[in-house]
Amino acid sequence: MTDRALAVVRAGALTTVQDRGRPGHAHLGVPRSGALDAPAAALANRLVGNPPQEAVLETTLDGCAVRPRSTVAVAVTGAPCPVAVDGRPVAWGAPVRVPARAVLEVGAAVRGLRSYIAVSGGIRVEPVLGSRSCDLLSGLGPAPLANGVVLPLGGPAAVYAHVDAAPQPGPPAELVLRVVPGPRADWFTPAALRTLTSRAYRVSAASNRIGLRTEGPALERAHAGELPSEGMVLGAVQVPPDGRPVVFLADHPTTGGYPVIAVVRSADLPAAAQARPGTPVHFVTVRRR
């Protein structure tokens, strides 16, 4: 095998390969997938001189460790965390040189949930329908990282960014999600709509790449009937029978049968990707653009 490769030393709780996803196949039941905190993934690529479509690693809470077979530039963005090369602390949020066969250790997130690791040349696993993203709902794309797996890398990038540190939004202490009324808001009582936008919710530990689940007051339906399956969008706030709203994230199903009470502004979804279980969530109504 070529020396443009990265060996997984410590896979972490859940580390996946992600790029910008595979939109355009929803009519076949294929979720869009892709990095949940897309701006953080894009910044990581930019810091190492990669074009924005290159695949990066997305960690979950406890980071991961990898060993490149040749010298590479890496950048870690998203959830702030300690970063070390062969045990020596190096910068987070900035390009870092990792010599051949040194171990890059990306530590547990200090705040937030998901860190992004870009490597110069990009992670070049085999694409599926034009994307290298690991889709946890449908199983498309590469499996989550496992110890010992070797990931191919692309050729070295031209020039990487020369910055000390790039500004990034901090993970939210409170998650504010701006919403517009959803297509099935009329399936709920007026009280339910007020409850959604006035009462406090918390991020549930059952959240994942498919959806941000919440704990809080149940939302009451105005009528009990069954909704025929309909197409779902990213950021849809779907209300299952238990009444607790679920915000659809990148691996969401393409169709669903529970009514959508509201839709979250796409600009607020990267923050949702970084909200830990227990984080307070406030849904705030805004006008449709």
């Binding site: 929803a26 009519h27 399956s229 309909e230 197409g231 169709t255």
Partner: peptide, 15 residues
């Protein structure tokens, strides 16, 4: 449009 998704009684146009 990015996605055209038919379903039981609807068609979703996304993006």
């Amino acid at each position: 449009v990015r996605e055209i998704v038919p379903a039981a009684r609807t068609v979703l146009l996304d993006g």
